[in-house]
Amino acid sequence: MNKLMQLRGGRGVSAAATAAALVLGGGAAASAYWGTTGSGSGSQTAGQLQVLTTEALAQPAGGQQPITPGGAADAAVRVTNPNSYPVELYSVASAGPATADAAHAQCVTTGITFQNPAVPLAPTVTVPASGSLTVVLPGAVAMDLTSDPGCQGASFRIPLTLEVRK
């Protein structure tokens, strides 16, 4: 019985030693793999995003009346992307007060405000590469009751800031 125990004990020690050797050998291999070093250089120049242009559309959308004091209207803006890749229109925000066209000098207080849409725009708006897209922002332009009577029939310039992402 002692011989049988010794053989089993011997095999057990041998198996444990082999397992330990495999683990240690694997650890050494992993250490060598992760411990490699090297050097080199590389360079790349980042491209420059070309400025997008915008154009407000003066005509009301089909079935929509011109804006009046106390009312709201959709803002329709044509965005032109001169870049060779499409861009996502992320946000549109007011960039200053609205002004009336030159023919309406008596329109000093316009009463016009631009309601910034939620950021990011939803649904996502993608302006195609080297192309244009008309974006309609529902109810984004409002005219309050303080607008001057001289604003009747005026067209308004509303400066906007667009944020785009590639």
Results as ranks from 00 to 15, higher is better:
2 N>P: 10
3 K>H: 12
4 L>S: 06
4 L>D: 10
8 R>V: 11
9 G>E: 07
11 R>V: 11
11 R>Q: 04
13 V>H: 10
16 A>P: 12
17 A>S: 11
17 A>E: 03
19 A>D: 04
19 A>S: 11
20 A>M: 14
21 A>C: 13
21 A>E: 04
22 L>T: 13
23 V>K: 09
23 V>A: 13
24 L>A: 10
29 A>R: 09
30 A>F: 15
31 S>C: 01
33 Y>L: 02
33 Y>H: 09
36 T>V: 12
38 G>Y: 15
38 G>Q: 08
38 G>L: 07
43 S>E: 05
46 A>M: 11
47 G>Q: 10
48 Q>A: 09
49 L>K: 04
51 V>S: 10
51 V>H: 09
51 V>K: 09
52 L>P: 12
54 T>W: 09
55 E>Q: 14
55 E>R: 14
58 A>D: 08
61 A>M: 06
63 G>P: 14
67 I>T: 05
67 I>C: 01
67 I>A: 00
68 T>H: 08
70 G>T: 08
71 G>H: 09
74 D>Y: 15
74 D>H: 14
76 A>K: 11
76 A>S: 14
76 A>Q: 14
79 V>P: 05
80 T>A: 05
82 P>L: 03
83 N>Y: 14
88 E>Y: 07
89 L>M: 07
93 A>I: 01
96 G>T: 08
97 P>F: 12
99 T>H: 08
100 A>F: 12
101 D>C: 03
102 A>L: 11
104 H>Y: 11
106 Q>F: 13
107 C>V: 13
108 V>T: 14
108 V>A: 10
108 V>F: 14
110 T>I: 07
110 T>P: 14
111 G>Q: 09
112 I>E: 08
113 T>Y: 09
117 P>I: 01
119 V>L: 02
119 V>I: 12
123 P>Q: 02
124 T>Q: 01
126 T>W: 03
126 T>M: 02
127 V>N: 05
127 V>M: 03
128 P>E: 04
129 A>L: 06
129 A>R: 09
130 S>Y: 12
131 G>E: 02
133 L>A: 03
133 L>F: 12
134 T>N: 04
135 V>P: 14
136 V>C: 01
137 L>M: 08
139 G>F: 08
139 G>C: 00
140 A>P: 13
140 A>T: 12
143 M>Y: 13
143 M>C: 04
147 S>N: 06
147 S>L: 02
147 S>K: 06
148 D>K: 09
149 P>C: 00
149 P>K: 03
151 C>G: 04
153 G>K: 10
153 G>V: 11
153 G>E: 07
153 G>Y: 15
154 A>S: 13
156 F>V: 00
156 F>W: 09
156 F>G: 00
157 R>F: 10
158 I>D: 06
160 L>A: 04
161 T>E: 05
161 T>Q: 12
166 K>M: 00
166 K>E: 01
